[in-house]
Amino acid sequence: MRKILIIGATSAIARATARRFAAAGDRLFLVARQAERLQAVADDASVRGAECVATAVMEALDDSRHAQIIEQAAEALDGLDTVLFAYGTLPDQSACEASFEQTRAAIEINLLSVISLLTILANRFESQGRGCIVVISSVAGDRGRQSNYVYGTAKGALTLFLQGLRNRLHRSGVRVITVKPGFVDTPMTASFKKGLLWVSPDTIARGILNAIDSGATVVYLPWFWRYIMLIIKAIPESLFRRLSL
């Protein structure tokens, strides 16, 4: 039985993952910004077998509440050993190009709010000498592309932050897992045309549970994205700048 905090518990990927945790009998503390949705997800997890489920409503941008929420989770679960970050937005790239305000909002939610929570959590786990931090980043952070480099910037910086954090916390026995999904069919991508590379949120959930159990550090989900991104990263910049990706 694990004691798991999920931040962004109403996202499609978080919901699929919470189901798997619940079926395994874990204890869950679920955090999201909309109370009604949060309750629906919590009820589902508790019917599916979670040992206990508690919730808190939080707007992720409100960093004044971050420390308190983590405290509350540890209290409700009687300790904390795993945290999953699963919220985010997919900003409109052209709107961001037209407005720094939009760009800043995208960076704040996808990067800065996560860093705020991670700072508090890292110290807590470091002093307790164990814990597992799982953060959903994205393949979009592996290389800047004209079609979504603002989102890519947030995820790329997040990936880098996690890399450093992993290095720092390794000594204290705390694990940091960076999850990089490819295309996932969720509300975030509702308007996209779906093709062969698309997977369900449950495929990502399965990958997340495997990563937690296997001691992985950086996981691409599904696995083939590691190779797709290897190729994309290998293209020389002089050529890459001419591509319309």
């Binding site: 009820d43 589902d44 019917v47 599916r48």
Partner: peptide, 10 residues
């Protein structure tokens, strides 16, 4: 209606 796939109580 498939996305309405949650249990509520048992």
């Amino acid at each position: 209606a498939r996305p309405l796939d949650r249990f509520i109580a048992f």
